[in-house]
């Protein structure tokens, strides 16, 4: 079994996929920054930002369902922000008894919670579109273009190259463990020993995986040296950005700045 399905990249023929990865990365970061800077309570701006990301999502031909499913990942974290509904603000909105306490929800707190939830939802959609419409080598190129240290980019690249190999190895370890542990239907017939024992087994597997990775990295290093590696990371020069991409970049940034100004002027 190979685990290429881990890769979120979905090749499609769409203008979003065709866009220069550097422009795409910068626009995605600018979008997330705009969302973060938008004042609490500037609801129309949030709706416009939602319209922007939904249109990009539709343009990307990835399917809105796909994007939303992946965007759900950020959902559990919202629990952390729920309490601010009850601790923030003066205008009581609703209250209900909870055991011996009475919980009072405030309008200001609710507004703050809603904007945090919206912010994270909008941002994660942008990140999903970026990751699903750009192949990893293209992302690496974009990272180089925004001046992330070459060494770090090279490590990212190597990690990606061997990620699937090592995940396959981890899956093999887990399959071997499952094959050796019979398990009854009832909970009483659970295989293996105590929880601590099971954790130790999992730890042994982790140690094993580490050891294999060590040895593999040795072999990779030898292979690299055999092919002339001397510690210098060499990569092809980045191609020039086309005028169409420049236009998209400028248009996108201007749109985001206008949205931000709109939010600041009316609700700031």
């Amino acid at each position: 079994m190979h685990i290429h399905f881990l890769d979120p990249f979905r090749p499609r023929l769409s203008p979003v996929h065709a866009l220069d990865p550097r422009v795409k990365l910068v626009l995605a970061l600018a979008y997330i920054l705009t969302v973060a800077l938008t004042p609490v309570g500037a609801w129309p701006v949030y709706f416009l930002l939602l319209a922007v990301i939904l249109s990009v999502g539709i343009l990307s031909a990835l399917g809105l369902g796909f994007i939303q499913r992946r965007a759900l990942l950020a959902l559990p974290f919202m629990l952390a922000a729920v309490p601010i509904i009850f601790t923030n603000g003066e205008t009581a909105l609703f209250s209900f008894p909870l055991g011996t306490w009475t919980l009072t929800g405030y309008a200001e707190g609710l507004a703050r919670f809603a904007s945090v939830a919206l912010k994270s939802w909008l941002s994660v959609q942008a990140a999903v579109v970026l990751a699903s419409s750009t192949s990893f080598p293209d992302l690496l190129q974009a990272m180089r273009a925004i001046r992330i240290p070459r060494l770090l980019v090279a490590m990212f690249g190597l990690m990606w190259r061997y990620l699937f190999v090592l995940v396959d190895e981890a899956l093999r370890l887990m399959r071997a463990r499952a094959a050796r542990s019979g398990q009854g239907a009832e909970a009483v017939h659970r295989s293996g020993g105590s929880m601590a024992w099971q954790a130790r087994v999992a730890g042994g597997m982790a140690g094993n995986l580490f050891l294999r990775a060590f040895e593999r990295s040795d072999r990779i290093y030898m292979a690299m040296v055999a092919r002339g590696y001397d510690g210098e990371i060499r990569s092809l020069p980045l191609s020039a950005i086309g005028s169409g991409s420049w236009l998209t970049l400028a248009g996108g940034l201007i749109l985001l700045i206008l949205l931000l100004l709109f939010g600041f002027l009316l609700w700031g």
């Binding site: 060494l151 090279a154 490590m155 990212f156 690249g157 190597l158 990690m159 990606w160 190259r161 061997y162 990620l163 190999v165 090592l166 995940v167 190895e169 981890a170 899956l171 370890l173 887990m174 929880m195 099971q198 954790a199 087994v201 999992a202 597997m205 982790a206 995986l209 580490f210 294999r212 990775a213 060590f214 593999r216 990295s217 990779i220 290093y221 690299m224 590696y229 001397d230 510690g231 990371i233």
Partner: peptide, 27 residues
């Protein structure tokens, strides 16, 4: 580490990522 660092760091990062999948059942 010198020139060894890129292969070693990259592969071990992949190993940590893969190692995060290893799990054991808790109640």
């Amino acid at each position: 580490l010198g020139e060894r660092q890129v292969p070693l760091m990259g592969v071990l990062a992949a190993a940590i990522f893969a190692g995060q999948m290893l799990n054991f059942p808790v109640a």
